[in-house]
Amino acid sequence: MALKILCVDDDQPQLTIISSVLKKEGYIVDIALDGYQGLEKARTFRPDLIILDIMMPGLNGYQVCQKLQADPETARIGVLMLTAKGGVDEKYRVASEFSGKVKDRMHGFEVGAVEFLTKPIKAKELVQRVKAVLWACGVGVEAEPSSS
């Protein structure tokens, strides 16, 4: 069964690229243009992985991530956070990575892994990181080449 990925970003061109690349890889992709829409679709679309931009107006990526975790319905979904190189969000990442709830999620696979990816996102890196997070969450069975 194909895995489902939800992309949350206010940047339309960025969404275009990510969703095209992932669709090509055989994933089912849905998009959300802000955090609120993202939270709603996390419940209705029930993705296996959420790609989350951090710097968004309204709810930022960290707030979305915390709300996802607080809701048992969505707490186990793996999250891939997008930061921009040299941007303020990257500093934010460094400051917050080891604090509070994000930290808890980072350490436990049982609650879903959180991973980061720095923009500009290259297609190959994106696919590889997505597979890794899915694998870490225990859902990327076909992402793992069978050992022989």
């Binding site: 339309q12 061109p13 275009t16 690229i17 095209s20 690349v21 090509k24 500009p120 996102i121 290259k122 297609a123 190959k124 696919v127």
Partner: peptide
């Protein structure tokens, strides 16, 4: 070269991205 890396060497995706970018 950088742009193609972003889209995984897929010119179609790049064309879509360009259209979407230039419009906004």
């Amino acid at each position: 070269r950088d742009a193609l890396e972003v889209v995984g060497d897929d010119v179609d995706i790049l064309r879509d991205a360009v259209a979407s970018s230039l419009s906004e």
